[in-house]
Amino acid sequence: LKGVVVAGGVLAGAVAVASFFLRNKRR
Score class of each variant (00 low, 15 high):
Leu1Arg: 08
Leu1Gly: 02
Leu1Ser: 05
Leu1Ala: 04
Leu1Tyr: 02
Leu1Glu: 11
Leu1Trp: 03
Leu1His: 10
Lys2Ser: 03
Lys2Arg: 09
Lys2Trp: 06
Lys2Ile: 11
Lys2Glu: 01
Lys2Tyr: 02
Lys2Val: 09
Lys2Gln: 02
Lys2Phe: 06
Lys2Pro: 06
Lys2Cys: 03
Lys2Leu: 09
Gly3Gln: 12
Gly3Phe: 14
Gly3Ser: 02
Gly3Asp: 04
Gly3Cys: 08
Gly3His: 11
Gly3Arg: 12
Val4Arg: 08
Val4Glu: 00
Val4Leu: 13
Val4His: 09
Val4Cys: 05
Val4Asp: 06
Val4Trp: 04
Val4Gln: 14
Val4Pro: 07
Val4Lys: 09
Val5Cys: 08
Val5Gln: 14
Val5Trp: 01
Val5Ile: 12
Val5Asp: 06
Val5Glu: 11
Val5Arg: 13
Val5His: 02
Val5Gly: 04
Val6Lys: 15
Val6Tyr: 10
Val6Asp: 13
Val6His: 12
Val6Glu: 09
Val6Gly: 06
Val6Pro: 08
Val6Ala: 08
Ala7His: 09
Ala7Trp: 01
Ala7Ile: 09
Ala7Leu: 08
Ala7Ser: 10
Ala7Cys: 07
Ala7Pro: 11
Ala7Arg: 11
Ala7Phe: 07
Gly8Phe: 15
Gly8Thr: 04
Gly8Gln: 13
Gly8Glu: 13
Gly8Val: 11
Gly8Ala: 11
Gly8Asp: 11
Gly9Leu: 02
Gly9Val: 11
Gly9Gln: 15
Gly9Ser: 12
Gly9Phe: 14
Gly9Lys: 07
Gly9His: 00
Gly9Tyr: 03
Val10Gly: 03
Val10Ser: 00
Val10Pro: 09
Val10Ala: 13
Val10Leu: 11
Val10Thr: 14
Val10Asp: 02
Val10Asn: 15
Val10Tyr: 01
Val10Trp: 02
Leu11Trp: 11
Leu11Lys: 03
Leu11Phe: 10
Leu11Thr: 06
Leu11Ser: 03
Leu11Asp: 00
Leu11Val: 15
Leu11Arg: 05
Leu11Met: 11
Leu11His: 03
Leu11Glu: 01
Leu11Tyr: 15
Ala12Leu: 12
Ala12Phe: 14
Ala12Tyr: 15
Ala12His: 06
Ala12Gly: 01
Ala12Pro: 08
Ala12Asn: 07
Ala12Met: 14
Ala12Thr: 09
Ala12Cys: 05
Ala12Arg: 12
Ala12Trp: 11
Gly13Gln: 15
Gly13Ser: 00
Gly13Val: 05
Gly13Ile: 05
Gly13Asn: 08
Gly13Trp: 12
Gly13Tyr: 02
Gly13Pro: 07
Gly13Cys: 05
Ala14Thr: 06
Ala14Cys: 07
Ala14Lys: 11
Ala14Val: 09
Ala14Pro: 05
Ala14Asp: 01
Ala14Ile: 11
Ala14Arg: 13
Ala14Leu: 06
Ala14Phe: 01
Val15Trp: 05
Val15Arg: 13
Val15Leu: 09
Val15Ala: 12
Val15Tyr: 11
Val15Asn: 06
Val15Pro: 00
Ala16Lys: 13
Ala16Trp: 07
Ala16His: 14
Ala16Cys: 04
Ala16Asn: 07
Ala16Leu: 01
Ala16Met: 03
Ala16Asp: 01
Ala16Arg: 14
Val17Ser: 02
Val17Ile: 10
Val17Gly: 02
Val17Phe: 03
Val17Gln: 05
Val17Cys: 10
Val17Arg: 14
Val17Trp: 11
Val17Tyr: 02
Val17Ala: 14
Val17Asn: 01
Val17His: 04
Val17Glu: 00
Ala18Gln: 09
Ala18Glu: 01
Ala18Val: 10
Ala18Met: 14
Ala18Phe: 00
Ala18Arg: 12
Ala18Tyr: 04
Ala18Ile: 12
Ala18Asn: 03
Ala18Cys: 11
Ala18Thr: 14
Ala18His: 14
Ser19Ile: 03
Ser19Asn: 12
Ser19Gly: 12
Ser19Pro: 01
Ser19Arg: 10
Ser19Lys: 13
Ser19Glu: 15
Ser19Gln: 11
Ser19His: 15
Ser19Tyr: 05
Ser19Ala: 13
Phe20Cys: 13
Phe20Ile: 10
Phe20Val: 10
Phe20Gln: 10
Phe20Glu: 11
Phe20Pro: 00
Phe20His: 12
Phe20Trp: 01
Phe20Lys: 13
Phe20Arg: 11
Phe21Ala: 10
Phe21Arg: 13
Phe21Ile: 09
Phe21Thr: 11
Phe21Lys: 09
Phe21Pro: 00
Phe21Gly: 03
Phe21Asp: 00
Phe21Val: 13
Phe21His: 06
Leu22Ile: 13
Leu22Met: 04
Leu22Asp: 03
Leu22Asn: 03
Leu22Gln: 04
Leu22Gly: 00
Leu22Tyr: 10
Leu22Phe: 04
Leu22Arg: 14
Leu22Glu: 02
Arg23Phe: 02
Arg23Leu: 04
Arg23Gly: 06
Arg23Val: 04
Arg23Asp: 04
Asn24Gly: 10
Asn24Met: 14
Asn24Pro: 05
Asn24His: 15
Asn24Tyr: 15
Asn24Leu: 10
Asn24Thr: 06
Lys25Ala: 05
Lys25Glu: 07
Lys25Phe: 07
Lys25Pro: 15
Lys25Thr: 08
Lys25Ser: 05
Lys25Asn: 04
Lys25Arg: 07
Arg26Asp: 04
Arg26Thr: 07
Arg26Gly: 07
Arg26Cys: 05
Arg26Trp: 09
Arg26Gln: 01
Arg26Val: 11
Arg26Leu: 00
Arg27Ile: 08
Arg27His: 05
Arg27Met: 04
Arg27Glu: 03
Arg27Leu: 04
Arg27Pro: 06
Arg27Trp: 08
